[in-house]
């Protein structure tokens, strides 16, 4: 219990919130990294997944890429990138690693969502004379939206976690409060940093949960 009160004291000390190593700056870094990389990953993964799903090609790749992503340690990729020439561009390794780990869930979920659209509906759309593009945007995409959004949610949570580990390899974000705590052998700071990271991750998850509940009925998942 003693550590918890010390961690609380750390969090309520305003000196820890300001400056370049302060909570506000680290939080802003974490938020920007997560959002920028989520947008980049969606721009890369979703068009590919939607086209592959529409054509019904490349399924083995789209499904297996998630398993590959799970087997490769985030930390290893971050350090490998840090030691390559990319490591010289500041947050370069973090951004590349974040995008690499966010693409697989986006790709897999969007592809599976597209393939799970009732084939009879697709055939009916074709029978009504819809072109491929119309079928993709007016039939398949709306019906697969819950799965696509589920992929975005998994990717967002993954991004928050990866951005935290990036601190081990010198990246910015809330993880730096934890690694600095370890370097100072300050357990209260480590715990305070961990609480901040955990709350941030749960808020991100919560935002998606609320968005799903507020979405119109047809766009909701089956859960």
């Amino acid at each position: 219990m003693n550590t918890l009160t010390e961690a609380w004291d750390w969090l309520t000390d305003s000196a820890h919130w300001s400056g370049d190593d302060g909570v506000w700056h680290r939080l802003a870094q974490h938020l920007v990294l997560t959002m920028v990389c989520l947008v980049i990953s969606c721009l890369i993964a979703l068009p590919v997944a939607l086209v592959l799903g529409h054509l019904g090609k490349g399924g083995a790749l789209a499904v297996n890429i998630s398993n590959i992503g799970r087997a490769v340690p985030t930390f290893a990729v971050l350090v490998l990138l840090l030691l390559t020439p990319i490591g010289k561009w500041g947050e370069g390794p973090t951004v590349v690693a974040l995008v690499l780990f966010a693409v697989p869930p986006l790709l897999t979920n969007a592809y599976v969502g597209m393939r799970e659209v009732d084939r009879d509906v697709v055939r009916a759309a074709r029978g009504m004379g819809m072109t491929g593009r119309q079928m993709l945007f007016h039939v398949e995409l709306p019906l697969s939206l819950p799965m696509v959004m589920n992929g975005v949610r998994i990717a967002a949570v993954q991004l928050v976690a990866t951005a935290t580990i990036a601190a081990l390899a010198g990246g910015g974000g809330l993880g730096r409060i934890i690694t600095a705590g370890f370097n100072l052998a300050s357990t209260p700071q480590v715990v305070a940093g961990a609480v901040l990271v955990a709350v941030f991750a749960l808020i991100v998850e919560g935002v998606f949960e609320v968005a799903e509940r507020l979405a119109p009925h047809w766009a909701r998942g089956s859960r």
Binding site: V157, V160, A161, T164, I165, A167, L168, G175, I178, G181, V190, V191, G193, A194, V195, V197, A198, A201, L202, E205
Partner: peptide, 10 residues
Amino acid sequence: TIPSLAMFSL
């Protein structure tokens, strides 16, 4: 949902 580094730290 809690990131691994935060879990170990907690």
